[in-house]
Design a protein around this nucleic acid. Structure first.
Length: 402
RNA sequence: GGAGGGAUGCCCGAGUGGCCAAAGGGAGCAGACUGUAAAUCUGCCGGCGAACGCCUACGGGGGUUCAAAUCCUCCUCCCUCCA
């Protein structure tokens, strides 16, 4: 590949690159570049949102560059003293280490983790000391900090910003200095921090890193960015059937977006699919099934993808029972004349968190036993081994007398 | 350091002594319709209880009152302005 082709392969689909020209220069150096990616030790469970930058990191790896994972253990230990932001909880050293392990394990599904350099930022932030930190802080101004969209908004809305939050971009920038980053990769929300990194690197007499960002993946709700705390995520480690099901339930509007960011078909392929759907040549559901297959195949296997789709069609298209369902254990001593209270059953199988919720579901007609709808919350139903309990559309359980 | 404003359920936000488990909206859940899509409509939306009901909840503690989210008091936190 010529350097130009490499450039296209690496950042052709990036949302922003500062700058492509500089990256091209670096690629021409003909040495492995150091690609920085910051891992959040408070959120070890990777989801498809993380997969977007990670698949790009893999491309760098393929071309022989060095991926450096930075585990923010130092920053993670400090947390956010204002307690306002849930994104920076305070973590113990053990939690951080455990999370880092989980992270590496899951990241290994996408990248060659053996070839990565994994660094903890306490390694250089600890020895930095107060003097070093103040020196670092002197390289930047409050006015420039406030350029960040998030900060200016919060100033306007009178939402407090702690000084520590000003420190985080600086510290992240210093990470770039410490690992001699050539390129930092992440989501578009990181652009500001990456650019601070460039300034700080210059201030420390280093060539500035290239900042490359990719569009943030929208979550399954179709509006917010995918994140665990919003519950709109599809985890990389999720079971094939769940993964497939979640993909099937995304809205049609974001389908091209998912194709563009999550498959090798890229923006072009996404546009083609969009056009086919628009013209009516392709049913959106089929496009979605195909996407589901691609994703499940990537994180599991082709066979898993196939059976996930078969299962989906069985349960939702034909309304049949799933092949496998968890057991609800019903102790025989709880039975009266072979009958059990329906509310109890619903709660026990995990269909409801509380009896009140179970009652609600029953009243609303969401509960079925052996395909027979139960709407009386006082009902005592006859249960036998193997009876099927259904709550809502997707919770199934099989009665197991114990 | 001084002055003023504020803290309500998952989120936003109304509520200034009883009619408040707390308006309204959003989110969420269920049902209908579908393609487990979106949109729409309907219902639910603190917990326990078969039920009269009981318990917990309006930043935290104490108090006034037959009765407090609402009044008094102390504390904590946040915001704004002045220095």
């Amino acid at each position: 590949m010529t350097p130009e082709q490499q450039l296209d392969y690496l950042v052709g689909d990036a949302s922003e690159v500062h700058s492509r020209e500089e990256l091209l220069e670096k690629l021409k150096l003909d040495r492995p570049l150091r690609i920085k990616y910051g891992a959040d030790p408070s959120a070890p469970d990777l989801h498809l949102g993380h997969a977007v930058p990670m698949t790009r990191l893999r491309r760098f790896q393929e071309l022989g560059h060095k991926v450096i994972f930075i585990i923010g253990d130092f920053t993670g230990r400090i947390g956010d003293p204002s307690g306002r932001s849930k994104t920076r909880p305070m973590l113990s050293q053990e939690e951080i280490e455990h999370n880092a392990e989980t992270f590496a394990d899951q990241a290994g599904r996408i990248l060659d983790i053996e070839a990565c350099e994994i660094r903890y930022n306490s390694e250089w932030l600890e020895p930095l000391g107060t003097t070093g930190l103040i020196k670092l802080a002197s390289q930047y101004t409050v006015a420039r900090m406030l350029e960040r969209d998030d900060f200016s908004k919060r100033m306007r809305d009178e939402v407090p910003i702690s000084i520590v939050e000003f420190l985080y971009p600086l510290v992240q920038a210093y990470d770039s200095v410490a690992v001699e980053s050539d390129v930092e990769v992440g989501g578009t929300d990181q652009l500001f921090n990456f650019l601070v990194g460039r300034d700080i690197m210059r201030a420390y007499g280093m060539p500035p890193q290239i900042a490359a960002t990719w569009t943030l993946l929208v979550g399954t709700d179709g509006t917010e960015k995918m994140s665990k705390s919003l519950g709109n995520y599809i985890g990389i480690g999720e079971a094939p059937a769940q993964m497939f099901g979640k993909i099937m339930s995304i809205s049609d509007e974001i389908l091209p977006h998912y194709y563009a960011l999550l498959t090798d078909e890229g923006f072009e392929g996404a546009a083609t699919i969009d056009a086919q759907v628009q013209s009516g040549d392709l049913h959106p559901m089929d496009a979605k099934k195909r996407l589901g297959r691609i994703i499940v195949t990537r994180y599991h296997s082709e066979e898993a993808a196939e059976s996930a789709q078969a299962e989906f069609e069985q349960v939702f298209s034909r309304g049949e029972l799933p092949t496998e369902m968890p057991d609800v254990e019903v102790p025989a001593c709880d039975l009266q004349d072979g009958r059990a209270w329906i509310v109890q059953l619903v709660t026990d199988c995990g269909g409801a968190c509380s009896n009140s919720e179970a009652r609600r579901l029953i009243r609303q007609g969401a509960v079925k036993v052996n395909d027979e709808r139960i709407t009386d919350e006082k009902a005592n139903v006859e249960v036998a081994d193997g009876d099927v309990l259904q709550v809502g559309k997707r919770t199934f359980a099989k009665v197991k007398l114990t």
